[in-house]
Each structure stands twice: as C-alpha cells, then as structure tokens.
Design a protein around this nucleic acid. Sequence first.
DNA 1: CTGAAAGCGCTAACAT
DNA 2: ATGTTAGCGCTTTCAG
Lengths: 326, 326
Amino acid sequence: MPVKLTDVAKLANVSPTTVSRVINNYGYISEKTRKKVFDAMNKLNYQPNSLARSLQGKKTQLVGAIVPSLTNPFFAELVSRIEEILNQKNYKLILCNAAQDSSQKERAYLNMLKANQVDGIISGTHNLDITQYQEAGLPIVSFDRNLCPDVPVVSSDNYQGGWIATSNLINSGCEKIAFFGNIKGSNNPTDLRLKGYQDAIKSHDLNQILVPMNFFESANLKKMTFQKLLTSHRIDGAFFTDDLSANLFWQYIRLNHFQNCNQIKIVGYDGTSIMRQLNPNLSTIIQPIDEIAKLLVDLLLKRINHEEISEMNYVLPVTFFKGDSI
Amino acid sequence: MPVKLTDVAKLANVSPTTVSRVINNYGYISEKTRKKVFDAMNKLNYQPNSLARSLQGKKTQLVGAIVPSLTNPFFAELVSRIEEILNQKNYKLILCNAAQDSSQKERAYLNMLKANQVDGIISGTHNLDITQYQEAGLPIVSFDRNLCPDVPVVSSDNYQGGWIATSNLINSGCEKIAFFGNIKGSNNPTDLRLKGYQDAIKSHDLNQILVPMNFFESANLKKMTFQKLLTSHRIDGAFFTDDLSANLFWQYIRLNHFQNCNQIKIVGYDGTSIMRQLNPNLSTIIQPIDEIAKLLVDLLLKRINHEEISEMNYVLPVTFFKGDSI
DNA sequence: CTGAAAGCGCTAACAT
DNA sequence: ATGTTAGCGCTTTCAG
C-alpha cells in the first residue's frame, strides 16, 4: 500500500538504482533523469522507508536519551534542547524515562535502544553496573554520571557550584549553613557539590550540617525533614542541590513563619528558566543547559563518526543568580 | 559485527526459522530446542534487530509525539506520562518538539515519522492544514486540537474549566474579571475556556474584559501587558488560561504592590504537580494529566489495531484547586 | 550515465 | 517439530 521506491522507478521509467541515486544524491545522474525522478516522487508523495535504508548498514539517525524524569524541569529543559539540536542535525530522539532506582527498567531501555539500532545514547542516569554499558558497544555520552572510563562525561562545575553557593551564604553573614542533598557519595560528579560546600565551610572554620534529601522525594517527606531540622538546629543558611527542594523550603519557612523568615538565607541549584520565572526570589546556581545540550550532542556525534575525542571529562562553568533569598 | 539471528542458529545448531520461532514464541518448538536456542542467545548476548523485523510488515512499536514545548511543565508532565504508559505496552516514543507557529517544522516531523514507519502519532499541536494530516494515512490522535473529522480528540473540559474558574471568582466577590489568553478563535477545544468565561460573565450581568496573551510570550512582554491593563482598568479578578502567566501576574502585583494585592483574585489553568508545589497559593483549574495520557494512548492503540472507535470527542472533567489567590 | 543482481536481518508460507 | 525458500524496501557492487 505505501509508495515504495520501485513505484517511483516505474512511474519515472528508470531503474530502482537510479531512483536510489537521486534520493541519496550519489553518483552521476543526468539533470533530465533527476527531474523525471523528482517529479515521480512528488506525484506519488514518496517517502523513503528509513527502516529499509538502515538495514543496509546505514545509520538510523536515531539517538536514545535516558533521563530520570521530565517532571523535573531541569531535565525537561535539557531534553527539550537536546531534541532541538539533534533535530537540526537530522537526528531523531527516542525518549526514555527511567525512573529512579530502577536498574531493571534502565537495562530494558538499553536493550530496546540496541534493538532499535540507535546510533548512540545520551544518558542522564545510571543505576546499572558499568559492564552493562560497556557491553552495549554503542556510542554513549553521559551527563553528570561516571559510567565507565571510556564514556565522555559532561557536567557543569559542581564543585564550583557548591563552593560559590556556600561562599555567598557566608558572605551574607550566615554561620550555620545546612546542606540539603545527597549525602552518601555515589561516585558521580554531583558529589562535588557537597565537596564544594564542605571546603567552603572548612575554610571559614564553620561547622557543616548535612541533611540528606533527594529531589525526587515527596514534598511531604521533605517538609518533615525541614521540621525535624528546624526544631533541632538553629540554622541561618541553607544550600540545596536542587531548586525544587529549595523553593519548597523557601515556602515552608514563610508559611510556618519560623522566626523572621529572612533570617534563613537560601541558595538552590539548577536555575531552569521556568524556575527563575516562577520564583525569581530564589537565589540559585545556574547550570548552562544550552551549552550542556550542545556539548552532549557534539560529543555523541563525534563518537558516532569515530572522530577522536581527546578529553573524557567536560566541566562547564556555572553562574550564581542572586535573588533576594540571600 | 553485531550478533544476528543466523549466528544464534549456527551456535544452537538449528535453522534460522527455529530461532525466529523461539524469539516470537510462535508455532511448535520442543522444550529441548527452545532451551538450546535460549542458551545460544544468552551466550552471544543476542538482540534481535527490530529494523529487520519491522521490514517484514511487522509493527515498529514506535509512536511519535508532536508537542509544542517541554519548557511548559504541562507538556513535560504529559509527555512523561505518555512515555511511561507506552513503555508499559512495549512501545517507544519519538519526541518531536514543534515550536509554535512553525508549520514547516511540523510538516518535516510528520514526514520524518512516516519515514520511520511509526505505528501512530500523538499530536498536541497543529499548524498544518487538515489535508497534511489526512495524507499522512497514519493512526493519529490529538490532544486539544481539532485536526480533522476522523481524528479522535482528547481534551479536558475546557468549557467547564472556564466556567468554574470564572464562577469561583464571581462567588468570591469579583465584579471586574479579566480574561488572559487566546482571544481569537482557533477552532480548537481550548477556545471553550473563553466561552466558559464569557457565559459565566454574562449570566451574572458583568462585563467581559479580554486581554490577549499567549503562554509562550516572553515574561517581559507579559509584564508590559499587565502594566498597560492595570493602568487602564481597575480589575478585581483575573482568569488565566495557563498557570505560568497566572503565576507571573501573581508575582507582578505583589512585587509592584499595586494596591493591596489581595484585592485582585487570580485563577490559573493546568495545575501541574510542579506548579502546585512551587506556588500552592495559586488557585487553578487542574487538568487530569494522567487520564489524558492514558486515554490518548488507549485510543491510539485502538486505532493502530483497527479496533472500532465509537466516539471522536473525549472530554475529561477538570477540578478546581483553591489556593489563597482567590 | 544507467541497470541487473545480490543481499542487509529477519519472518512466513510451504514443505517435510 | 523443524528446515527451505522467498522476499520486506532499499543500497551497492559490478557491468555495461
């Protein structure tokens, strides 16, 4: 039923080979023939079947993106940019929403992407052991995750982010600054946010206060954590490794008017455009989403085209956005 | 280089057909053979090539989603859910980010999806003329857009949404209620939000105040609109057809402390989880994202499997969320 | 400059 | 219960 190459060939009165040549703009073709073929293609509204093309060993122009969740605006914006850039370069995006902590789902995605012959994978999660990714035998680049030694990692400057956030809190007069985020090391670049915090704290002879918190926890769970902390500690500064939790806290201390709420200064992390529009009061560390997306795609395409990649670690600078929460 | 079916066949000492039978769990196979084949598959870490399978006329299990922008949390959450549901049903999602007002990009996406033999399309935009979609000859379902008569449309109850929002404003004592959103009819279900507003206004003998606003306009442009409006009109209620703009207004009147800001009540639209977490003060009309996603996928799969679809119009109920902005 | 023929990896009659 | 064979729609030698 669908129009195929041979239909075009028949109508144009040429061989399939010739049509293929026209489509792929390859080899010598007389202008006359080319026109005939184009006319036939238009008349039939012909659309080459990419499956059949790729079966010859051609690339599929398909890229898989595995991310934790689009509900987090950071990933939504990142994926959005990645798709736009891929689209410009004639690639298509298969979206994979691997929930947290589901190595099973992630493995399934990996297999699926392989089965679909994607040309490469951009990964923003890693619940799998390294070997799984190595076995994949596919060009992969990763965001903020150390997958395995030969997978390029792009991240924003997590250490600087932690350092700058904390330093700004200190410079605004805070002395009891809590860190809200992942406490136990995961051997990922994001661990450095904590390190940056700790180093800044130490260099000013302050004491660290670590509050375990995952961005994907429920709001209520987070609020319980806030309450527990605020009754046990008298903090005057708070650094969050994500804006959503930071904003929640910002609201929490206002709604529960703990003391004068301005006595606790807050800095978040991510700085998505949506977040800055929704709560411009919130100071935050802005990750350069656009550049991250560009670099990820760039590196992946290099991998796909077997170009040399000199460096395996790419750290993009962050910027501090000063709202009035600090 | 990649492992293929014949490699498995060779190792297991059976014919390719047998392997195919095992993979597809089809026809009679002795347990012994099945095991042999499975062992070989595991040993070789075999992954069937879906391209080749689909080329036989099998389905690709690929679905394309065309949406305006993931930067809008509503679409981010919708896409996220759609992907999850599709994944459960063994479908994969090709994400297409068709910016606003780019019929060219949308057409390109449509062609691309056709070329990739997707089994169906979920569309959340329409810059194209109807014929383009008809020509596609592909199962399509649409969200909030009247594409063409034979494409099922899912939407939430836009009319009720407009009506409820406005009624609640009226019941809270508002008498000069402005509508912020798309003013000129687009022949889409979302037009009904305006209709709901207008009917509620009329039924209470009030006067309508229409303020043109698109959710994808820049924040600064919107603020200019706010300023212009507030200097010319003395409104006491505002209904926005999207939460982002509503929230911007909510902030705007607070930051610029126009009179007592509580004198202007506000109701937004969409009610994404992220938005309700970020600004729980904002009253809004909640669209049932989960059900919308389920229904869209459900209808699409029915279309794909040539099951009868009785109804072409699906209107899901909305709920009112009362924050203290009203 | 153009065409014929083989084959990509898999499946589906049709044997046996 | 298993194997043989002929394609799916396209590209790509290899000939002309």
